[in-house]
C-alpha cells in the first residue's frame, strides 16, 4: 500500500505518494521528498527529531508536514530516512523523524528542494490514500 512515484514535470519535481492510512500516506510523501534529492540508502539513522503540527484540514496539515521537513532539512542541515507519523481526529500530527546531519563527502545531492508548492497539491482517498505535490527545486 505504501509507496511513491515521480511524474514528469519540466522544471520541478512532481510526485504521488500512497498509503493504506493517512499516516502512511504522510510517511511515504516524506520519503518521496527526500528521494527527490538523494539516494535514501545513503542516509543513516543517527539522530531523531520531533515534529508537532496542527491544522484546519488534512490537506493543510499535509502541506505543513512537508514544508516542516524542508525547514528541518535546511535549518538543521540534516537529511532523513525514516518517518513515523500519528494523527488524531482533530488534524493534529505528532511525528518522529530519523536521519543524520549532512556529510558533504558522503551525501551526494541531485538537487535541493526549496519549498513545497500548492500547485496541483491534493490529498484524496479512494481504496487508499494519495497525496500529490509539486516541489520547487
Amino acid at each position: 500500500m505504501k509507496g511513491y512515484e515521480f511524474l514528469e514535470h519540466t522544471a520541478d519535481v512532481f510526485f504521488r505518494a500512497y498509503g493504506g492510512t493517512a499516516e502512511e500516506m504522510l510517511e511515504s510523501s516524506a520519503s518521496a521528498l527526500i528521494a527527490s534529492m538523494i539516494d535514501p540508502s545513503t542516509v543513516r539513522e543517527e539522530e531523531s527529531w520531533k515534529v508537532e503540527l496542527e491544522a484546519e484540514s488534512l490537506e493543510d496539515l499535509a502541506y505543513d508536514w512537508l514544508s516542516e521537513l524542508v525547514f528541518l532539512f535546511d535549518s538543521e542541515r540534516a537529511v532523513f530516512s525514516r518517518f513515523e507519523v500519528s494523527l488524531d481526529g482533530n488534524w493534529r500530527l505528532d511525528a518522529t523523524v530519523w536521519g543524520e546531519r549532512i556529510d558533504r563527502k558522503r551525501h551526494l545531492f541531485d538537487c535541493e528542494v526549496k519549498a513545497v508548492t500548492l500547485h496541483k497539491f491534493q490529498v484524496k482517498r479512494d481504496d487508499r490514500w494519495t497525496l500529490q505535490a509539486v516541489l520547487d527545486v
Binding site: 514544508s67 526549496k114 519549498a115 513545497v116 500548492l118
Partner: peptide, 11 residues
C-alpha cells in the same frame, strides 16, 4: 532559504 521560507509562510 530566507526567501523560500518567506514565500512558504505567506502562501
Amino acid at each position: 532559504g530566507a526567501g523560500h521560507q518567506i514565500c512558504t509562510d505567506h502562501l
